[in-house]
Design a protein around this nucleic acid. Sequence first.
DNA 1: CGTCCCGTTGAGGCGGTTCAAAGTGCGTGG
DNA 2: CCACGCACTTTGAACCGCCTCAACGGGACG
Lengths: 237, 237
Amino acid sequence: MLATAYANDAGTVDHTTGFAPKRSPDADGLELRGIAGPTRTFEAKEHVFREGDAVTHVYQVEAGHVCIYKMLSDGRRQVIDFAYPGDFIGLGAMHEHGCNAQATSRARIRLMPVVTLRQVMRDDALLGMKLYEAISRELLAARELLMTVSQRTAMERVASFLVALSRRNARRGEDPREFVLPMTRNDIADFLGLTIETVSRTFTKLRAEGLIDLAQSVLVTIVDPASLEEFAEGRTH
Amino acid sequence: MLATAYANDAGTVDHTTGFAPKRSPDADGLELRGIAGPTRTFEAKEHVFREGDAVTHVYQVEAGHVCIYKMLSDGRRQVIDFAYPGDFIGLGAMHEHGCNAQATSRARIRLMPVVTLRQVMRDDALLGMKLYEAISRELLAARELLMTVSQRTAMERVASFLVALSRRNARRGEDPREFVLPMTRNDIADFLGLTIETVSRTFTKLRAEGLIDLAQSVLVTIVDPASLEEFAEGRTH
DNA sequence: CGTCCCGTTGAGGCGGTTCAAAGTGCGTGG
DNA sequence: CCACGCACTTTGAACCGCCTCAACGGGACG
């Protein structure tokens, strides 16, 4: 039985990459460490997999950040998700990957062969349930993003993006008020269905209205969380 | 073992509702009939469940059509999917539903209690796999819709909507060139992130350019499938 | 026949894009 | 250590695609 292997013993530094360990990953404590195969380190901009690749593994980010995106033939890009340490990537792909996964910064990633995954899902109902829940969360997130991109204004999109990052940090036991953006304006723009100019202007406006502060372009401080959430929910006309 | 219960014996008319039987559902032949509980008939506009409702069942549409959508507090609506006969709805919800499900026309729906679902997923790896695949398809669809809504023009959105319906019909063994839209312009607009006026204008334009024909507002005939797909993929500037 | 709902069409306005240019931070090499 | 180049960000101005508001048409139903 593999059911005892979920023990969250994250606490040691990976000396091969020098990453600081993260305390509580998003995936409700489920870790492939001890269950699955080895890790691999991907450099910034390196792809973990690409759309159309045969599915060979399921991946779990252990350190760094990964950008999941889809492309249109003419270059238009849609960022689907930013994977943080603890997050799974590559779940739900059946035969070939339906999107691309690219490290935004150096990332350490654990690999689990899909054959192992299938076998484990047969043998271990609890793990199967965990993966079902992980993919369910991805579905929820995709639909929430759809709502954001399709229905909200630029202001509301950026606000809800920041609120989501803040909540994610809170869940991970990090500071929900001040954090570093692990992605570029371009990534944010392609995530929210805006241009980088609009994203930049909107950040500026949020700062001008005193809802956030930007000491550097990547360092966000949420000054007025309540008002930011109002904006995010569209309750501020 | 429940593994033998998947046999697709759809072929009898349900005399309680008078629905014509559908030949091949979308969910790769997986049917809850014989595994799960009874069916219930929902009238047009009746809700199967609402956002925030406790999750009590998983549902499979057997006849009719169901509109899945989310709402913002100020009334903005995002349609997430249109469920056809054979499609599951309510999958992936953990404790409470994250969206609403409303019959667009009278619909017969099979109900399976979640407790049964959980038990079956433990006991029957194959069924668990099938449900994992069903939710994976939903994730794929959500991301594809995200791409469409976020990156494509009105013309491209409507074109890809029609192409998707056409392919769906082809998969179901029905006519991919001529079909009835089981939803209103309003539903389509909220699905594609447009207004009903823009949807209407775009249909008119597609007809004017000879790509489709509209004998009635709900009866679509695809005249030039190749060109329509070109539009859908954005290869036509 | 009137009402209601849905779809279509038209005219004008606006939010976000496009195009252009200047500003900022950082690694690299002289 | 500074100069330079490069990638990223910010800001400005003009444009455009879709939205808003408004009016009209047609089928279903009482």
